[in-house]
């Protein structure tokens, strides 16, 4: 799974067959110095908003914008946020929502992906085109009617109501279909000869073979739905179901007059779990997005 990001090191490490023609070997490499400088400046600019927020969150309320870097750091803002809103509740709601969606997606997309990859039947290809079309008909765009449907089903303001529209993910079906298609048919035949049923073949041959794809898809799904905002905003109405992003938006709106230090603290609290997860599983995360993006 780590292969693609590691290829170049070994490839570049090959001995050069031709001497460099354009400049002598020991002269300072200005282009490289410029590259390094540029890359660093851009990297610092890119994480500056995050660093400022982190620093602001640790400032006493009201003084963050004073930009006094000698001021003592405090965790008071985090305590204030924790006490001001049902943060633990939002956190649990997000956790439930993300888990629910992921389980639904894994089950539905596995079954459908398997059908598209290994079953022959009339209308399959036309159906697959319809599924692909859903990559473009975003659930976000259909908010008006989806809201009506969720309300009719009596699922307004429930975790299921937020999650249901995302479970039959066209993207997941597509990814798993590709993964299942690349499984050698001999493996399946061997299992069939041993008397495995279709379900057993799926469970014992295909699912284990597609493990890296599952991991990639799971990471992308978690990140997407942890961060999703517009749809949960529409179908939630109470602190009992509201996810973190919606809680944060209600809390952080500037016109509520909340201090920037407190907003920063709330923001940091919202993103911290995902951020820490990202920093720990960085390579897998980037790989996951890569794999997920190559359609």
């Amino acid at each position: 799974m780590n292969a693609p990001l590691q290829i170049p090191q070994s490839a570049i490490a090959k001995p050069r067959l031709q001497p460099r023609l354009r400049r002598p070997l020991h002269a300072p490499d200005f282009a490289k110095v410029l590259d390094t400088l540029g890359a660093w400046v851009l990297a610092l600019v890119w994480i500056a908003p995050l660093l400022f927020a982190l620093w602001a969150a640790l400032q006493p309320s009201g003084s963050a914008l004073a930009l006094d870097f000698s001021a003592p750091l405090t965790f008071q803002n985090f305590i204030d946020v924790w006490n001001a809103v049902p943060w633990a509740g939002y956190f649990i709601n997000t956790l439930i929502l993300v888990t629910l969606i992921l389980i639904g997606q894994l089950v539905l997309c596995t079954l459908a992906g398997f059908a598209f990859a290994r079953f022959e039947f009339r209308g399959r290809d036309a159906l697959f085109m319809l599924v692909l079309l859903q990559l473009f008909i975003l659930p976000e765009v259909l908010i008006v009617e989806n809201y009506a449907i969720v309300a009719k089903l009596g699922l307004f303001d429930t975790a299921l109501g937020i999650g249901l529209p995302y479970m039959a993910s066209a993207f997941g079906i597509f990814l798993l279909r590709q993964a299942f298609k690349s499984v050698p048919i001999e493996l399946e035949e061997a299992a069939r000869i041993e008397g495995c049923s279709w379900m057993a073949v799926l469970w014992k041959v295909y699912v284990p073979a597609a493990k890296p794809v599952y991991l990639a898809y799971a990471l992308v799904s978690i990140a997407t739905h942890w961060n999703n905002f517009l749809w949960p905003l529409i179908v939630t109405n109470s602190p009992d179901t509201r996810p973190l992003t919606v809680g944060l938006s209600l809390f952080g709106a500037p016109e509520t007059g909340v201090d920037i230090s407190v907003i920063s603290a709330a923001t940091i609290m919202t993103i911290l779990p995902l951020l820490v997860g990202f920093l720990i599983f960085q390579r897998q995360f980037i790989q996951a997005f890569l794999r997920a993006g190559i359609r």
């Binding site: 908003p49 995050l50 961060n227 938006s249």
Partner: peptide, 28 residues
Amino acid sequence: IPARSFIRSAYFTPTILPMIAAANLWLF
């Protein structure tokens, strides 16, 4: 480039933030 993996992470980090959180960061 020195510290390439740090640079790569710095570029990528905004991707995993919720848009709402990104907006809050930029308010500052």
